[in-house]
């Protein structure tokens, strides 16, 4: 985040605060002796453009992430799931995501799905994430802010989207080659395709830790 961007933000009215809905899962919540909380691994915070919000991640994602020893959380931004709607566009939703990120016990990895990827990209410009994962991004600004603290960035798109202009624009903006997953971009929350996608993300996160 540049100083100029901060000055601008500090002098514009802050979005109206809302009571946000969270869903979270700690490794201890699995009641499995085999699974140890890994204090070195960054926690994960997910968000999605799906109107269900945080609840969408309950089916598979949070448990699966917790199985890898990470604290897993998801947040519903304004207007999603159990979070009341409030004024504000992209910026206000990014604000919700940053506010959620600072409540996570340690420096978190942000995972954004669809429109959530745009919010995560903006949030990463204001908060030093441990990693930024964009899944099938939608409506990401043409020039997303440079992520604070230069975190590793992973872009994952569905096979059907690999040629789409949107995915390529995001890939160019971050200078990364997209990873592809089988299945449709809307169908990432359960099923075989979702498990493959999650495994890819988790192994990327685990590899990043070793570097």
């Amino acid at each position: 985040m540049s100083l100029a961007a901060w000055v601008r933000r500090a002098r514009t009215p802050a979005p109206a605060p809302v009571k946000r809905e969270y869903a979270f899962f700690e490794p201890a919540d699995l009641f499995d002796l085999e699974i140890k909380d890994d204090p070195e691994a960054s926690p994960v915070l997910c968000c999605t453009g799906d109107p269900a919000g945080a609840a969408a991640f309950n089916a598979l994602w949070l448990k699966r992430i917790a199985t890898s020893g990470r604290y897993a959380a998801a947040v519903s931004v304004r207007g999603q799931g159990g979070t009341p709607a409030a004024e504000g566009g992209l910026e206000a939703r990014a604000h919700d995501l940053v506010q959620a990120a600072v409540t996570v016990p340690r420096q978190a990895v942000l995972i954004g799905h669809k429109e959530g990827a745009a919010w995560a990209a903006l949030a990463a410009g204001r908060y030093p994430t441990a990693g930024l994962v964009l899944v099938s991004p939608r409506q990401v600004p043409k020039q997303p802010p440079r992520p604070v603290g230069a975190p590793p960035v992973l872009l994952v798109v569905a096979e059907s989207e690999t040629q789409s202009k949107e995915a390529q624009a995001v890939a160019d903006a971050y200078g990364t080659a997209p990873l592809t997953f089988a299945g449709s971009p809307d169908d990432v929350f359960k099923g075989a395709g979702a498990e493959g996608l999650l495994d890819a993300i988790l192994s990327w996160l685990a590899a990043g830790k070793k570097d």
């Binding site: 605060p17 009571k19 604000h95 506010q99 409540t103 908060y127």
Partner: peptide, 8 residues
Amino acid sequence: PDFPMPDD
């Protein structure tokens, strides 16, 4: 700047 206080 990169660690806002809770907005409530």
